[in-house]
Write a protein that binds this DNA or RNA. Structure first.
Lengths: 164, 164, 164, 164
DNA sequence: TTTT
DNA sequence: TTTT
């Protein structure tokens, strides 16, 4: 059924790249998306939207985006649940990005290191490339909780979370 | 910043209509949106996506949609947080529907009662009508938790949650 | 770059299915999408939006949709140009549907013939299935004009129009 | 009915700002949106998508965007037709932008002149502001053709084209 | 806690 | 050239 999300915002932190036991890359990041209207106190707020991206685009995200980078996401809303360490069921809504667009010019602020530049275009595209062969990274661990609460520690992401 | 969501799915329950202390209508509902792919067990799963709608469209949703109704939503992803009754901060991601389209023909299943039909069109549109005058309903109470965990009991929705 | 369109509307005519010389299916159809607002005469207008869909979903569209069917489209805006028979360049903007959702219950009006019903679901989904083997149909001809102006006559659609 | 488009691309030319006889601002511009895939010759193509924006955002677009600016558009697909000067009916599909996001940092290339900077944010948002009072500009003329073929010459845009 |  |  129709399920489509498009976002443009800035990463609140560096993305986190992991690999499932079978070697599939996953990156998590949060986009801060400013609201187009002010609240009753006259302030502009933002939404902090958790995103996940799989496979090759996950590695591109990890390589090209850092805290503060401007990025566009085209994807789907997904929901899942897990039992936290108090045995309580937790419900999660997040955006599965099918493609990620890098909107930060390559030569800007903290992106200096990427200025190698193979293209005549300062922006890069993290599209979805279906056929790849990508099982170098490996990672496991006793993880049984929300990835978003688990920065950097070893985890065990099930391949069941794969969105295709 | 760009933040756009479009969904088509079925209501998992009847929508819940409430009013803020100042009389603004809010309806909550969950859409079950079937995924276009099967999981590793070969089953088709669904995402259960929480939606909120304000003002006149909220009342239309409450009047025209029931459990199982097919509906389309055009809106934005929003995030908020609140402290639950154990003093723990809970983060919520939900879709604020700017317009809701009723995709269930009026004369179908349990919608029989609506077949009065003022229009020559069996489908109705719950668009956003900016200028209205809508402060009949009133509701208050000691609510300090997630609306989605609080079906039917008296609540106190802050006008701060208004998305405009 | 981000380019996303989501539509729900009704087919203005039966879809037209054709095949490229190399046997790839293409279907064209126009969606009438009612506007959510009235014009200055107080009338509700519609937009008549040309859509193209390729491969397996093209055949599904041809099999399941007819004039008047309610359908959802998730796709991209594409532009192309061609020289018409007066040697004038014509610019075309159309929606390339990546997936088409059938929103008409199978047992409705003129869809009776489809009520064989393999699934317990009255709605079908015309998703994009990347790996297929589809080169029965064949078609050729002296076509050098807009497909939309060429209903049913033999044509020669170039594989160059393939959106991937 | 659902009709939603989101685009990110670059202006192919400076936007054209005009006013209807009753003083409503309209801006036209074309976005070049790069395709995420290559054609059979291995080249990356772009779609050139005509956009229209009304009222205050039209003036913002005219003030802040120039040829080459990166911009995001959230809007709807609209179709219309007119009779050209050979008495032939021409069909037009274009995007009516409800909001335009400026993705070009204010201090970049040819945007130097805008670096006055009232905000602590280098990006500006051309959202839709419903209540305004905007009838300084005035313009009329014997226009009876496609606005996109009529750069800079006096025109007469009918208020009938207003999308609300 | 989930819809057809 | 338009659908319910």
């Amino acid at each position: 059924m129709l399920n489509r999300v498009v976002l443009v915002g800035r990463l609140t932190k560096d993305p986190e790249l992991r690999y499932t036991p079978s070697g599939v890359a996953v990156a998590n990041f949060t986009l801060a998306v400013n609201r187009p209207f002010s609240n009753q106190q006259g302030d502009r707020e933002a939404d902090f939207i958790n995103c996940v991206v799989w496979r090759k685009p996950a590695e591109n995200v990890a390589n090209f985006l850092t805290k503060g980078s401007l990025a566009g996401v085209d994807g789907r809303v997904q929901t899942r649940s897990y039992d936290n360490n108090e045995g309580r069921r937790v419900y999660v809504t997040e955006i599965v990005a099918e493609s990620v667009q890098f909107l930060e010019p390559r030569n800007s602020q903290n992106n200096q290191q990427n200025s190698g530049s193979q293209s005549n275009n300062n922006y890069a595209q993290g599209g979805y490339a279906p056929n790849q062969n990508d099982n170098r990274g490996q990672q496991q661990g006793g993880y049984k909780d929300d990835p978003f609460a688990n920065d950097g520690k070893p985890i065990d992401i099930s391949d069941d979370d794969l969105p295709f």
